[in-house]
Amino acid sequence: MHTFLYRTNSLLTFVASVLVVLCILASITDYFHRDSAVVAVDIVQVDRFQVSQAGNDEAFLAFNISADLRSVFTWNTKQLFVFLAVEYATPENAVNQVSVWDRIIERREDALIALPRVQNKYRLVDQGRNMRGRDLNLTMYWNAMPKSGRIYTGQKTLTGYRLPDTYS
């Protein structure tokens, strides 16, 4: 009844249950957290706009990205994965989302972003030739990866961007 193994087993079981409850509690505090994120993104310039070798429209853009995501951090936030997606609809595709820039932010102090001119980090290529004169939305997403518990995403969409009618 009271062997070493038996006691070890009940101790480990107890420790595990306490940890699980603590993790759930930590995640619940996240749930009630409200942030006041500030995001301002703009397309500064269309560097190049052409048909790629594979025959799809491809744009090279320069963005102005500034954001203050310090309020997103809670005591249970391990890191934010922040990315900027170009979103548009074409006759072929109801939804197109292309991530053009991203960054991992591990500390609250680093969540103040001010980048005056960044070129797209990943290629902005369409599935076809539907990008001329296309209206775009820019959405900033921040995926909060916790120390433990729920993973969640916040976002802010900015509308009213448009690609040129001709290639350059």
Partner: peptide
């Protein structure tokens, strides 16, 4: 891995996604 690109067909609603490890 994380989804970094999504194309959803207008007619069928099928998605084509591209992923990447952070």
């Amino acid at each position: 891995h994380r989804v970094i690109r999504v194309h959803e067909k207008a007619e069928t609603g099928e998605v084509e996604v591209l992923t990447k490890g952070d």
